[in-house]
Structure formats: structure tokens, C-alpha cells
């Protein structure tokens, strides 16, 4: 047949259905196959592009697997000491309130060594975005126990499984943060199915939009896989996460609004 479609006829702007966002660089990511980081990076980059805020956004990378996030998103970056990203973001945002500032942190960074910085930044209602990757393990250092490691979960430093007497309980830091009056938006998402990816992107978008409204801190947890650390295939890791983590870390919004009004906290009229 003479009217067979030629490749040149297919590759046309009007036929474009998907394109890599220009906010993502062309640097190949160092993350393991099956890791959730790449997807979350892409979502943050897409939100930045769609909101047109590339020139006004500054990221804070953590210590952990995502320390090199600055190689992948084409924005200005600060690289924080372990756990201190919310303090670094606070320091920046306070002297540049017109900028969008986000931190991108793992569970060890945010919920162990950086617990104080996280709690106090959220309690002050800093107008920043915190992206929290919870994969229940320390990935970068080789799979040690994290504050969010599940009971019974085997890691390099809990080789016989996390034990209550020895290690205490997995920390539901997101539930704790949702109690803080400075929080505007606290949500828990995942990126293991196309549907969840879309929901997660909406959550990240809302978080960034919130930070321009000065209504308090927006916090997006992404329950994630670390198949290398968990010593599973990517498919097994997704299944393990659904079976074991989702019941303990249920997906959905924990708070959606804005920071608390001061009325309930006033013991005396504020002096001007």
C-alpha cells in the first residue's frame, strides 16, 4: 500500500504524548534499577516546569542516596549536612521569602539524625516543601536499619530482624508531624503504580503551591522501595512494600489545610 505511515509522519509535535521535562538534566542517574528516587525526582522536576518556577526554586539535597540529586534537576542547589536540610532551607527561606525552597530527604536523614531540625521547622510553619523518601533502610551506606525499618525486617545492622527490646519501634514520623500546628499539608504517597505516580505528583504540586501562599509547611512522604537494600527484585520489592509497609504506613492525607490559627495557643494578648 502506498499510504503506509512513514516514521517522519509520526514524529510530529501534534502527535507528542510524552516528553522528558527540561528541568531534568541528561545526566544518567546513579540510582539502582527499581529504586523509587528516579520517579520522585521526575515528579518534582515536572511540577517545577509546569509551575514555571525553575528560576525561583532552590533545592536542598540530603546526605544519603539522594545527596547527588543536584546532578539531576536543573536548578540551584544546596547540599546539607546529614539531617540538617530543614535548617538549611529555613536559613535560606527566611532571607529569601519569595523563593520556592524544598528539601529532599531519606528516612535516616529526616527521622533519625535530623529529627530535631524536621520537627522544629514544621512546628515553626516554615513555608518550605519537605519531600520525605521512606524506604525503611539506609540505602547509601549499605542497607543498615533505619528509624522506619519494620519490626522483624532484616538489615545489615538488624541481621536477625528488627527487635523491639533491642531497637525500639519503627517511627511514624509523618503522624507526629501532622500533629504540629505549623504544618499546612501532610500526606503519604507512593510511586509503585501509574495511578499512585499521578496522585503523588498532585501532592507534590499542592505542596509547592502551598509554599507560595505562606500557610505553613508542606510535607510529602513517599513510601518507597529499596530493592538493593532489601535484597529483592524490583517486582518483589513493590509487593513487599504493599504487603508489609502500607498497613503500617497507610497512604493518604494526614492534614490538608493551613497552619493552626493562634487562638488556641494564646495565653495572653500578643504585645505589639
Amino acid at each position: 500500500m502506498e499510504d503506509t505511515l512513514k516514521i517522519e509522519d509520526i514524529i510530529k509535535p501534534e502527535n507528542l504524548v510524552y516528553k522528558k521535562t527540561s528541568v531534568l538534566t541528561d545526566v544518567p542517574m546513579h540510582y539502582c534499577y527499581g529504586c523509587s528516587h528516579g520517579v520522585v525526582h521526575k515528579l518534582v522536576a515536572e511540577v517545577i516546569e509546569e509551575m514555571g518556577i525553575q528560576e525561583d526554586t532552590v533545592g536542598v539535597s540530603p546526605v544519603g542516596c539522594a545527596v547527588l540529586a543536584y546532578n539531576y534537576l536543573d536548578i540551584d542547589w544546596m547540599q546539607a549536612a546529614h539531617g540538617r536540610a530543614p535548617a538549611v532551607a529555613t536559613g535560606y527561606k527566611r532571607v529569601n521569602p519569595e523563593k520556592y525552597v524544598f528539601t529532599y530527604q531519606g528516612d535516616g536523614d529526616l527521622a533519625a539524625i535530623g529529627t530535631a531540625e524536621t520537627m522544629h521547622a514544621v512546628n515553626r510553619g516554615e513555608n518550605i516543601v519537605i519531600i520525605f523518601i521512606n524506604n525503611a533502610i539506609y540505602g547509601m551506606t549499605g542497607g543498615q536499619m533505619a528509624p522506619t525499618t519494620m519490626l522483624g525486617q532484616q538489615t545489615a545492622t538488624s541481621p536477625y530482624g528488627r527487635d523491639i527490646d533491642l531497637n525500639g519501634y519503627p517511627l511514624k514520623i509523618t503522624e507526629l508531624l501532622a500533629q504540629l500546628p505549623g504544618a499546612a499539608y501532610v500526606t503519604r504517597q507512593s510511586v509503585h503504580t501509574p495511578g499512585n505516580v499521578r496522585k503523588c505528583k498532585k501532592a507534590i504540586r499542592k505542596a509547592f503551591e502551598n509554599s507560595a501562599k505562606n500557610i505553613g509547611t508542606s510535607f510529602v512522604e513517599v513510601v518507597s522501595t529499596c530493592n538493593s537494600g532489601w535484597k529483592q527484585t524490583p517486582v518483589e520489592a513493590n509487593e513487599w512494600m504493599e504487603e508489609n509497609m502500607f498497613p503500617f504506613y497507610p497512604l493518604g492525607d494526614l492534614k490538608d489545610g493551613e497552619r493552626e490559627k493562634p487562638d488556641a495557643y494564646l495565653v495572653q494578648k500578643l504585645k505589639k
Binding site: M78, A81, A87, T90, Y92, V95, E117, H120
Partner: peptide, 15 residues
């Protein structure tokens, strides 16, 4: 600890 790291953030902005 936090205040020194806040300086990191503010200084990064050139302030």
C-alpha cells in the same frame, strides 16, 4: 547545630 546550618542556607543565598 541548627543555627550553624541555617547560616549555610542564608549564606548560600549570597546574604
Amino acid at each position: 547545630v541548627a543555627s550553624a546550618n541555617m547560616l549555610f542556607g542564608g549564606a548560600s543565598a549570597g546574604k
